[in-house]
Design a protein around this nucleic acid. Structure first.
Ligand SMILES: [Zn+2]
Ligand SMILES: [Zn+2]
Ligand SMILES: [Zn+2]
Ligand SMILES: [Zn+2]
Lengths: 450, 450
DNA sequence: GAATGAGGTCACAAGGTCAG
DNA sequence: CTGACCTTGTGACCTCATTC
């Protein structure tokens, strides 16, 4: 009969993103149109064939130039030696490659991780400890064996999407499981950060609160003028010589310090409590918490930021205007953060989404060297599955929304990197006061790996 | 045996196999039998080797005559100097040549473009802006960065056909995408030109309509005789002297003018709405619309023409007999158009094919100088993919049909060139009345390149 | 049944060869 | 020198095992 479906023209149209999943980034080797993971890396059909051929018949390619030719779209001539070199540098290899269908969650996770690796070929190739490939290389389930594993047993099969609809009351076990996990995460968040829910449920009062902060700032401004612009150096000199606190900077520091100590304590408690984290060794937990600090805060408190009024505050935060914050941190960076918070607001995240996202961003395995990367990777997979399930049942465009969320996650990571630098500067200037706030200090001192 | 396995095309038997694409035109240099693209141009083996050799050992050929010898498909007697010159004039060059296999759509596009260049060597070589080689030379998209591109993605307009999935329910994503694009194009056409569909669905009533027009013409003819043959000059003289409209010419002009204004407005709206066009800058859009005007109309309204009765008309057109039209345009040209319309009718184009063809002919990048030729080229590739897909699923001889369609497109382009000249004459004679119809005026004023 | 990636096939265009 | 034919790297498309 008709059959005859799939054929021709597949590749030409892959350029356009598919709606149901996170979009595939371009070929890591040549920037052409990618068609999935090949030998462990997202590449185009051409680079895939090239690499396969290279493995097959060990051609001794020689670069005619300096071994650093750019590999662009290879439809035009390219240096084969450098192309192959780049393939290896990106981690392409024959072994441990995944086969068969991906669950949506796994696929999403793999792509996100690949994206977060952008422009890091060399590092990876040098360090040779490529955790980051875990997810699409030999993700394999050893699971089975282990008796322990995560709150919710094994069953890493996960939703399957597809049916998922349950208007009739009945609900498959897996769905129940995911639903429970979501509820639990939200509850944990509610318990540890009871105020966060208010940002979702009382947006008007939050708005008023922000206006008040702004009001107070204006009054202060009128009383004392705008000449608060004492530089960090000037301030420290005055303080050293006179012991005075000319612009309440120290008071603010202490406020912030106390607030952060409490906040961080709750982060730790959150991690202790949420499903799956209990079984992770504490060294890894500590690393994960430190590495995701900025993002974890941002996705919890983006609604506490008002980029128009340039204020930030809430019942569980230190209220402050950007002019206060910039006494400690780079104003540019603060503004970037505010802009980012704005973009999150536009997404209109729900509290469930927020809790799930925060769980996901806690469990990126490629932020640092971990003792149990697979375990944590599987955990993240679970959270991603929950998010996908939640979107499928609560959004009319789940694929698009998922992509949008992961796009934000991606951007947040780059901000997070900036934050580490900013924190270094902060510590340099204010480290002499930090000893009273050990948790904060530890958080600030995190500089990348360990 | 049977086993329906799929090839590039339908699989009646396995005999078909061959990728019946558009036939390859003869060698651009010597008119011999071509063997594909060589150094960017469709040539024969001989010319390919000749050009390669010429690049290798830079012989200084000298023409014994006047540097304009004809190059023929003979083994001996070709002037090497002129042959090489012609090679260069046609755009042959070593750089940026495609490697590897072609996708069906790309190959089709490349050949079509090559054909449309016939007899234009010199122009191309002078302008040195050889857009037309884009498709087989470094077509590729740098895309990557752009949030980009084309079609579906948001589908912010129009029905978008949500379901659209055919009887059997499931369908691979890529196919769904192509199908959606086709549906969307058809819908756009339906919305902007609601009457076009009637030409497809009520051929009998169209036929009757045409007969009525002819009837009226005959009646008028009997009443007033056939001596309406006042020439343009005579008419204008009478009009200038008396202000009279002896043969209703001015009334017809106004009718036509109003009709065209509306039609062109719908062309613009069509372009605003169809997937992919939204992201093209308006300067390019304007150029494309103007350059394809004639063809776009023809492929939309060929069924409104009856070459036997020599009439043209429909609900959204100005009904007229050839004797009316020839008051404004060259009768020869009108007859050519009618003949062409007839050939289109014989093809029995479906409404989907029509919509796709119209999208394709809007996006030829070699009609004029464009700001974003690659983008538009990629867009056209998309439309061509859709057409190929549609033919594969709806025609029993997709390859043949594709070739036939592109053959018509090719002929249409030459008519389009004639049309530009005809329009110049028209403007010359009737420009003094055109100011009330600014869109029409702009369309008519188009003379090739901006 | 649907999706995915390894491996395979062969269309395609350079570049080379060698009788004419 | 010419051009039919061959060799080679390439990449679009297909098949199939695997996994969900
Ligand atoms: Zn590539
Ligand atoms: Zn090189
Ligand atoms: Zn030739
Ligand atoms: Zn000559």
């Amino acid at each position: 009969m008709k059959t005859s479906t799939n054929q021709g023209l597949t590749t030409t149209d892959r350029t356009v993103t598919t709606y149901t999943t996170v979009p595939l980034p371009p070929c890591k080797v040549c920037s052409g149109t990618s068609t999935g993971f090949h030998f462990g890396v997202i590449t185009c059909e051409a680079c895939k064939a090239f690499f396969r051929r290279a493995l097959l018949q060990k051609q001794n390619y020689k670069c005619a130039k300096d071994d650093n030719c750019a590999i662009t779209d290879t439809r035009l001539g390219n240096c084969s030696a450098c192309r192959l070199k780049k393939c290896f540098a990106l981690g392409m290899s024959k072994g441990g490659v995944r086969r068969g269908r991906y669950s949506i969650a796994l696929r999403t996770k793999a792509i996100i991780e690949a994206r977060s690796l952008e422009g890091r070929e060399i590092i990876v190739s040098m360090s040779s400890s490529s955790y980051s490939y875990e997810s699409h290389k030999a993700v394999q389930q050893k699971t089975k064996k282990e008796p322990m594993d995560i709150s919710d047993s094994d069953s890493n099969s996960l939703l399957e999407s597809e049916d998922s609809k349950s208007p009739t009351g009945y609900m498959p076990e897996e769905e129940v499981e995911l639903k429970n996990l979501i509820d639990t995460l939200v509850s944990c968040q509610d318990i540890m950060y009871p105020h966060i829910r208010k940002y979702f449920e009382n947006k008007e009062s939050v708005q008023k609160y922000h206006e008040q902060i702004h009001e107070r700032y204006k009054i202060k401004q009128e009383m004392f003028g705008t000449e608060n612009n004492i530089s960090t150096e000037e301030f420290q000199q005055i303080f050293a010589e006179t012991g005075l606190d000319p612009d309440d900077r120290l008071t603010m520091f202490d406020q912030k310090g106390r607030s952060m100590e409490h906040y961080i304590q709750q982060v730790i408690n959150f991690a202790k409590v949420i499903p799956g984290f209990k079984s992770i060794n504490s060294r890894d937990v500590a690393k994960l918490l430190k590495a995701s600090h900025y993002e974890f805060w941002m996705f919890g408190y983006f609604q506490a930021i008002d980029s128009k009024l340039q204020v930030c505050g809430g019942e569980d935060l230190v209220d402050s205007h950007i002019s206060d914050m910039s006494k400690f941190f780079s104003e540019d960076f603060i503004k970037e953060g505010m802009k980012f918070a704005d973009s999150l607001k536009q997404l209109q995240l729900s509290i469930e989404e927020t809790a799930l996202i925060r769980a996901i961003l806690l469990t990126f395995t490629d932020r640092c060297t971990l003792d149990e990367p697979e375990k944590i990777g599987n955990l993240q997979l679970k959270y991603i599955s929950c998010l996908i399930y939640h979107l499928q049942t609560h959004s009319d465009q789940p694929g698009k929304r998922l992509a949008a969320i992961f796009d934000r996650l991606y951007v947040a990571r780059s901000l997070s990197h900036r934050n580490i630098e900013v924190n270094q500067e902060f510590l340099h200037s204010w480290g002499f006061l930090i000893h009273e706030y050990p948790l904060w200090k530890e958080m600030l001192a995190y500089s990348g790996n360990e």
